[in-house]
């Protein structure tokens, strides 16, 4: 196993939309088993980075190496998922007409051949669904139509859909957006639990949440890597304060960062 290296590295990724560069020669790496937070002002390119990792967008230049395999930028979307990249979207993407349990059931057979999908979920798979339901705290809501869930519950369900697939790398785009304080705490704990067995990349705006749960933070700005390091160091970095607060106001006030980023 290539445990020593990095699960994902992105080299010189550039994405332009009509001449505007959403990513500009970005280099980015995550190690095996790492929990990494990605921050940056609106439009910094955070979602776009997830888009090129998952294949939603093709980069104009650049290379992606996943789990020791180069050329991943050319793989189809579903191949990347089968290789072990799972993604939670910025707006909760669940299937509203299916029940909570059925949503998990839909996620479970992703490595099966089409005709194998014709059998109903097996006992082992039912067990996995139950385990995941209790892990995401939706055990009592299994038979509810997912469209009727609260915003926070939808976010958890989507995390559950990824979790049941046991990805090697999990990408979470603003998992606590729109959540109440208590829901955030629950999610933070869930996140730490999830990160025990895999690499996780979390995009998050909520600096309070980042401070509580992050170790290493990467800051993105105008499609480039601005800085990277432990939360405390990043928060007091004058460049970070400047991009969040604008030039001329770099007084190094930590609270300001949290405020502006929300």
């Amino acid at each position: 196993m290539a445990q020593a290296g990095s699960i994902l590295s992105v080299h010189g990724a550039t994405v332009s939309f009509d001449g505007f560069k959403a990513l500009d020669g970005l280099d980015f790496t995550i190690a095996y088993g790492e929990l990494r937070f990605l921050i940056g002002p609106n439009g910094a390119g955070k979602t776009t980075l997830l888009d090129i990792i998952t294949g939603k967008t093709r980069p104009d230049h650049g290379e992606i190496v996943f789990d020791g395999r180069p050329g991943a930028q050319r793989w189809t979307e579903h191949r990347r998922v089968r290789a072990g990249i799972g993604r939670k979207f910025q707006t909760p993407a669940i299937f509203p007409s299916l029940t909570v349990a059925e949503n998990l059931e839909a996620a479970i057979g992703f490595r099966d051949r089409v005709l194998t999908l014709l059998r109903a979920a097996s006992t082992a798979e039912r067990g996995m669904i139950d385990t995941t339901l209790s892990q995401i705290g939706l055990g009592q809501r299994a038979e509810v139509r997912a469209g009727l869930l609260s915003h926070g519950e939808k976010q958890w369900l989507e995390i559950g859909m990824l979790l049941i697939q046991q990805p090697k790398l999990m990408l979470l785009d603003e998992p606590v957006a729109g959540m109440t304080r208590r829901e955030r705490d629950r999610t933070g704990e869930l996140l730490q639990q999830i990160a025990q067995d895999r690499s996780v990349l979390v995009v998050e705006h909520d600096m309070d949440f980042v401070r509580r749960f992050a170790h290493t933070v990467t800051v993105l700005h105008t499609g480039k890597l601005l800085c990277e390091g432990p939360v405390e160091a990043v928060q007091s970095d004058p460049r970070v304060i400047e991009v969040y607060l604008g030039p001329g106001r770099n007084q190094g006030e930590k609270k300001g960062v949290a405020h502006a980023a929300n």
């Binding site: 299937f95 996620a107 490595r111 109903a120």
Partner: peptide, 22 residues
């Protein structure tokens, strides 16, 4: 069957099905 779940899932959000690895 599980295929049935996916058919309804595609009706709801085809892209999501793609990013679930199908």
């Amino acid at each position: 069957s599980r295929l049935g779940r996916l058919l309804v899932a595609m009706r709801d959000d085809e892209n999501r099905v793609r990013f679930l690895g199908y």
